[in-house]
């Protein structure tokens, strides 16, 4: 029985660790400026927790087998514990966990404490059951007014987010169902939701943020490679949650400008 437990626990430990270490299933390749930092912190945490995991599970299996009751077993070690050991491992785990935390915190500070730098691309993301819309302010650099009463999801784009076309600032606003971004430029994101909470999740950018009704949440990130990336909604938003899917197309600055101009032309 002791041996069976040892074998089972060791096998579980081996297989669990193997698929992590072999990266059979792993984070997609990171294509934003913060991705390397996050991945580094991830790897560090993974190695440390992996060591603790393997040591704890292997010793559990070993101790159960080694000290199983047998007719030949000697008397047990009568002991109520060891204060020195207790203090030692309390201190060690405290240092490990809190230290790890502090190491990751500067990345978080950089991501969330500072606003986007000047010259970034402003984009407003609006989530609704069950679609994403992306708004660009146009040549004036200002987002026009929206009006909840004007929201008409069945019409799509401008009407879907209730753009108030009588506002002069709204005239040149562009609303699209696919997100276009220029490569290597910071994106100044504003997240909104019209009905329930949604979450804007792009695994390749290591980016996720809830879009909350009643809040306009400002975030920023910088994509670093041209390509198509998928957006998944990561907050339960209703029966169509699983198909609230979107695309980000990261293109060169020229292609981005050309796309914007094309959309402006289409509006006229």
């Amino acid at each position: 029985m002791g041996l069976a437990i040892l074998v089972l626990i060791w096998l579980i430990t081996f297989f669990s660790t193997y698929f992590f270490a072999a990266k059979t299933w792993w984070l997609p390749r990171g294509v934003s400026t913060s991705a390397p930092w996050i991945d580094h912190q991830f790897a560090l945490t993974f190695v440390l927790m992996g060591i603790v995991f393997v040591v704890a599970q292997v010793s559990l299996g070993y101790l159960v087998w080694k000290y199983r009751a047998r007719p030949s077993s000697g008397p047990v070690r009568y002991s109520h514990g060891n204060t020195t050991l207790e203090i030692l491992w309390t201190a060690l785990t405290a240092i490990l966990f809190i230290g790890l935390n502090l190491m990751g915190s500067n990345v978080w500070a950089h991501e969330r404490f500072e606003p986007a730098k000047a010259g970034s691309v402003p984009v407003e993301v609006t989530g609704m059951q069950f679609a994403w819309y992306f708004r660009y302010p146009g040549a004036d650099g200002k987002f026009g007014q929206t009006d909840p009463k004007l929201i008409d999801p069945s019409s799509g784009n401008e009407a879907a987010i209730g753009l108030n076309t009588s506002d002069p600032a709204a005239k040149d606003d562009i609303v699209a169902g696919t997100m276009f971004l220029p490569v290597n430029r910071e994106v100044d994101l504003t997240l909104r939701a019209v009905d329930v909470i949604h979450s804007f999740f792009v695994p390749s950018f290591r980016f996720k943020q809830d879009a909350v009704p009643g809040l306009a949440i400002r975030m920023h990130f910088t994509p670093t490679e041209v390509g198509d990336y998928e957006i998944a909604c990561a907050e339960l938003c209703g029966l169509g949650h699983y198909k609230m899917h979107g695309m980000v197309k990261v293109v060169s600055q020229e292609d981005f400008d050309r796309w914007l101009a094309q959309r402006e032309a289409d509006k006229q």
Partner: peptide, 9 residues
């Protein structure tokens, strides 16, 4: 860790 929660949340 908030930074790791970004991809995992």
């Amino acid at each position: 860790q908030p930074v790791l929660d970004i991809p995992l949340h």
